[in-house]
Write a protein that binds this DNA or RNA. Sequence first.
DNA 1: CCCCGACCGTGACGAAAGTCACAGGACGGA
DNA 2: TCCGTCCTGTGACTTTCGTCACGGTCGGGG
Lengths: 208, 208
Amino acid sequence: MEKYRHLFSDLEPKLVQEMQEKGRIQEAKAGQVLIQSGQNIRSTMIVLEGLVKLYRESDDGYEFFMYHLHPGDGCALSLICDRTFRSSAVTARADTDAVLLVVPVEQTEHWMREFRTWYHFVVGTYRKRYEELLETIDHVAFQNMDERLEFYLRRHGQALGAKVLEITNTQIAQELNSSREVISRLMKKLAEQGKVRLLKNGIELLKI
Amino acid sequence: MEKYRHLFSDLEPKLVQEMQEKGRIQEAKAGQVLIQSGQNIRSTMIVLEGLVKLYRESDDGYEFFMYHLHPGDGCALSLICDRTFRSSAVTARADTDAVLLVVPVEQTEHWMREFRTWYHFVVGTYRKRYEELLETIDHVAFQNMDERLEFYLRRHGQALGAKVLEITNTQIAQELNSSREVISRLMKKLAEQGKVRLLKNGIELLKI
DNA sequence: CCCCGACCGTGACGAAAGTCACAGGACGGA
DNA sequence: TCCGTCCTGTGACTTTCGTCACGGTCGGGG
């Protein structure tokens, strides 16, 4: 936990200490599902290491990508489920190997009363997630597939801090709720425009 | 303010009293813009009477409908702007004549420390709005225009508690980010299916 | 070695939805 | 009454996108 202290520099030392005491560190492999759609939430999850992706699931099982969680980020839904143990409407999946801090909801209720900085953390988390949802809505409501694809690539490049995305067209298509063929064609266009280079097993981002 | 007390039965009496003292009652005519996209937020808004609609605005000025605020609801964005006076990314407009309670943000900061029930109010508000955004995403991501139109009509019928919507196809088209002609054709189909009846100046909802 | 599975590329087609053009009804004001 | 404005309806066309069908590459396991 010591090595993660810098993530919580905005929180009171006493709170950080409690997080350390009451929380449980959990490791997850890339691809592992952390929150299943429809499952009850009994604990709050904060990302310590790695990258987590959040999806909205459709009735027929399609996973629509919403946003990333980075180290230091909490899962908004689980932060405020507030002892009602509501079932969640989203799926969270580790995108890289990840380390998480897991805290029972009762504990966070307590922190909310005790620590002003925890309240700020929750409120800040919620605002960020809300605004990322708004941005997601912008794209899906106002833009065509080609613009959405560019945005997807940019977002993932930034989130991973990498110039090369090891990801298949099939997966992109699923997350944008499109089809492989469409992504394939659009990707070719992006390559012709010099915005990406299509590698053996990945996509190199150039002017994007 | 007395007549609105039932809206806040979950809040401590002392808090309700403070809301009464520190808040300002503001009336708004139907159609009036309450929060302008890009405008700074210096006060929190809670709906006391009437119906408020929230929109996301695109770069080129299109207004995409997100959700309604009912009496007792607070505007999520303005609840937690938290003295940073961030500019808002949404537009709020009174859909019917409305009455609002307006409170300076400094005051709500104070309440957050003082009143446990205020914290619950904020958290509850956020969760509701977040989930409504998720629902909005579902529709725009997974559904066709005809399903989205039906959902739009249902939602508006419920929000207004009315069987007849006095609304033009043009407006619906704007709010769904579609075009008048498309809505016109789909509306005709709904009428043929007996789900609505097209009136002189409005739409009667039947089996919807 | 061969086969299988996963992935990609591509042409052909069709459905959904946006755009254009035009016409007509309702209504209010000069 | 006549005009302008706002709303609607509709046919024709285009674009975007999803679907189908097929072929091709690559790598791992039997």
